[in-house]
Design a protein around this nucleic acid. Structure first.
Lengths: 243, 243
DNA sequence: CGATTTGTTGATCTTACTCAATAATCGTGG
DNA sequence: CCACGATTATTGAGTAAGATCAACAAATCG
């Protein structure tokens, strides 16, 4: 097994990077936002940030580590809703409700930044650019989900996995990490569940992509050897389904 | 073919019903909102309300008729994103962008209400309850898309169709129309595309559900004979995937 | 009324699922 | 630090749900 790379990155001013459009806010506004909404919290592997049904109070941003959102239906079947990496916001789906509508657990030791929703609404009423940014963030999430609709409705197993990996690659790159060499924080089961595939299919596709010289997979360590080919297979419009 | 029922319903004060929480706004605020955002527009069958790539200016609410949202990928393949019925808001996915990210066309002669986005942001900055409502509306849409994720990722063809019909039923009921007897405004092809199924499969499932005495299908006229059984098959959590 | 689109039904094929066995990895405690 | 049990991942064989291809029927539209 390779030496594990450092895949957890912290953002200095969490709210600044995550919920604000830095350019559009004055330094004073940024300070105000930071003072009101920034609250750190460590989360051990397999521990929940929040659980389905719990009272909704806050949005969360990932500072380091990785978070999995999922819900369980009446038959007890789990559905993985998404994975969140450093710099990403989650809990947005609960705003319309008094309670969280899914559960969020840490896939590895993580740190999250809590943004009390009451503060978010209060501040965004005062700071026009913050409101605009919140609307955009929510809208982008809707758009992302719609692109995912196409993935599930039209793409083959190979296309789904390729799209997924390409998307992870982009998100790591955005966080100034290697876009071609990273560790998958989630299990094969979680990947399959998320992409609407059986675990075995995920395993087989990984093997096939490796045989074709596109990937090098060693457990959870992943290297993309031919990003171009990977994108070709994914051929997902605009090459991204998560902001 | 049966005598077509009147399936188009107008809402008196469009913005009031659609984008506001009536109870939480004062009459003066409602008047203000209505005066700023309400603009009607008729749309003939197969005509677009907006098209992918066009400059984003407004959100829209359906007053009467039915609207289909879809996008086309680089291979020219269409993906149906959603169907919108009277009282429902669409165009939310474009807020994060300067241009619309999908196209919206009328499935039948329709009337839509235009809500210039600049007015929406301006008003929601002033009226706190309007901002809260916008956040909730966007959040609910995210939640709906996530429930759809489960449909595409886990459900069989029969479950998908049943869930779809049950959902339509609920939406017609909300608009004070019969929940068990209505006209499908979209083609079988559109239904299949939306649900990730081949047209032939849609046709076959309709036939099967009819043979089991659950439905009566006559072209686009639909009667749900056994809503209980339909819901059992759908067994989708909370029995709804669109608000 | 004829042409074109849309919907239905049947036969065959394919992709990915299921079941099953084995291998590798992880986590825990001695 | 190593050994053990438990979880997670891989690979193979057989199956099934739904796709595709093809032919025909019905509805819609000009």
């Amino acid at each position: 097994m390779n030496k594990p790379q450092n895949h957890t990155v912290t953002c200095h001013a969490c709210s600044l990077n995550v919920i604000c459009v830095p350019q559009s806010l004055t330094p004073e506004e940024i300070d105000l936002v930071d003072s009101k909404v920034q609250r750190g919290r460590a989360v051990q592997r397999n521990k929940h940030v929040f659980e389905d049904g719990q009272q909704f109070t806050s949005l969360y941003a990932v500072r380091s580590g990785a978070i999995k959102a999922y819900s369980v239906d009446q038959n007890g079947e789990e559905q993985v809703i998404g994975f969140y990496l450093p710099g990403e916001l989650f809990g947005l789906d609960a705003i319309h409700n008094d309670a969280y509508v899914c559960s969020a657990k840490a896939l590895e030791t993580s740190a999250v930044c809590e943004l009390p929703y009451a503060q978010v609404t209060e501040l965004s009423a005062k700071i026009h650019n913050l409101q605009a940014h919140m609307y955009k963030t929510l809208s982008k999430e809707i758009n992302t989900d719609q692109q995912f609709h196409r993935l599930l409705s039209k793409k083959t197993a190979e296309e789904r996995i390729s799209t997924f990996l390409q998307n992870l690659s982009e998100r790591y790159q955005r966080r100034k990490l290697s876009p071609t060499s990273f560790r998958l924080p989630m299990s094969r089961t979680d990947i399959g569940n998320y992409l609407g595939l059986a675990v075995e299919t995920v395993s087989r596709v990984f093997t096939r992509l490796q045989q074709n010289g596109i990937l090098k997979v060693d457990g959870k360590e992943l290297q993309i050897l031919d990003l171009g080919k990977l994108c070709d297979i994914a051929h997902s419009e605009g090459c991204e389904f998560r902001s």
